[in-house]
Structures are given as structure tokens and as C-alpha cells.
């Protein structure tokens, strides 16, 4: 398959340190799960082209460091994001309690219209669970978030998380709630979009991207 795509969506993965953000990104773009991952330094960038509702869409994903000292750097990448995975660790009450701060940052620094999916990661560690599904589901409902539990280790719901978020973004574009033409929407028309006469400059292909996975 080719590098062509109709839309490009900018995505954030945010949440406390150690919740598995990098493992979610790596699982989604096809890398192997690693148990003893070191902390992300700054931000990490990955991308993948997926098919959503018949439209080829490139997801440009920024995985942000959870440590406090990187806040000023990671926040500069909130601007213009169309979607975000807000990640907590189901075995860590602290990471769930910190969600309000992360959510506030996302809505003020990115955009009020950003599509946010709450992700409870590490659901494979059922015996260590500290946050119940229903409690998190209620938090998501109260804050108008979508919600999924995942396991980056087993791969459960990882792709679904990104696709669910992307579908919602696409739906908002089609209903006019999100305007790709507006600066900062986090959405760009892609190389093969019929809505543009001249295609924008083609973004670089990342080493982790593989054509056979499209």
C-alpha cells in the first residue's frame, strides 16, 4: 500500500509517569512490548496510517513524558491536537486521581473541542486493580469522555482506542463541528484529498512505519 492518505490527525498520549503511555504507542505502531521500559524523555513521535470509514487517515501521535520536569516541553505539543488518549493505570489510584489535572491541561492547552478517550491501562493485572471499571466509567461520563480499558502488554483494545477516537474526530468533521481548515484543529488534509488542488508537503515517514501493516 502507498503513503497516500486523506486526513492527518494529531494525537496526544498523556497521563502520569509509568501508566504505560509509551507501551500503548509502541503496541499500536507494531513494536514489541517491553517490561522494563525506561521513562520517556521529552516527547516521542510515532505515526501510522489507518482506514476509518473508508478514508485513509494518518495518525501522528505524540507520546509525552509524564514526569513533572518535562511539563513545559510536553505542553507545547498540546497545541493543535485533534485527539488525546488520557491514560491512567488501573493498578494505581494515584494515576487515576491525577486525571483532573491532565484533563484540564488538555482542554485549555489543546482545544475545547479536542476528542478525549479515557484509557485505563494494565487491565491484565486484575489482581492488583485499584480502580474499578464502573468508577472510571462514571468519571468519564461526568467529564464527557469516551472510555476504554486496555492492556498494552496483551494488546487488548489498544488499536480500538486509537480507532474509536479517530472515528469520533471524523464524525465531527463530517457534521461540521470540527473544521479542518481552521488553524489549530489538529487536522490536515492529506496527500490524496480531493478537497485540495495542491497537496501539502508530505510528512516524513518514520522508521517504525511499515507499509505491509496498512
Amino acid at each position: 500500500m502507498s503513503e497516500n492518505y486523506e486526513y492527518l490527525f494529531k494525537f496526544l498520549v498523556i497521563g502520569s509517569a509509568g501508566t504505560g503511555k509509551s507501551s500503548l504507542l509502541n503496541n499500536f505502531i507494531g513494536n514489541k512490548f517491553k517490561e522494563d521500559r525506561c521513562h520517556t524523555i521529552g516527547v516521542e513521535f510515532g505515526s501510522k496510517i489507518v482506514n476509518i470509514g473508508g478514508k485513509s487517515t494518518k495518525l501522528q501521535i505524540w507520546d509525552t513524558a509524564g514526569q513533572e520536569r518535562f511539563r513545559s516541553v510536553t505542553r507545547s505539543y498540546y497545541r493543535g491536537a485533534a485527539g488525546a488518549l488520557l491514560v491512567y493505570d488501573v493498578t494505581s489510584r494515584d494515576s487515576f486521581n491525577a486525571l483532573c489535572n491532565w484533563l484540564r491541561d488538555a482542554r485549555t492547552l489543546a482545544s475545547p473541542n479536542i476528542v478525549i478517550l479515557l484509557v485505563g491501562n494494565k487491565k491484565d493485572l486484575e489482581e492488583s486493580r485499584e480502580v474499578t471499571y464502573s468508577e472510571a466509567s462514571q468519571f468519564a461520563e461526568e467529564n464527557e469522555l469516551m472510555f476504554l480499558e486496555t492492556s498494552a502488554k496483551t494488546g487488548e483494545n489498544v488499536e480500538e482506542a486509537f480507532l474509536k477516537c479517530s472515528k469520533t474526530i471524523l464524525a465531527k468533521i463530517e457534521t461540521g463541528e470540527l473544521d479542518p481548515e481552521r488553524i489549530g484543529s489538529g487536522i490536515q488534509y492529506g496527500t490524496s484529498s480531493s478537497k485540495r488542488i495542491t497537496a501539502p508537503k508530505k510528512p516524513a515517514r518514520t522508521p517504525s512505519e511499515c507499509a505491509c501493516r496498512l
Binding site: I29, G42, V43, E44, F45
Partner: peptide
């Protein structure tokens, strides 16, 4: 982690 993704730090 630098082996799996491009980093900006």
C-alpha cells in the same frame, strides 16, 4: 526508547 521512536527532548 530512542530505538523505537523519534524523540524530541
Amino acid at each position: 526508547s530512542f530505538k523505537t521512536a523519534e524523540s524530541w527532548t
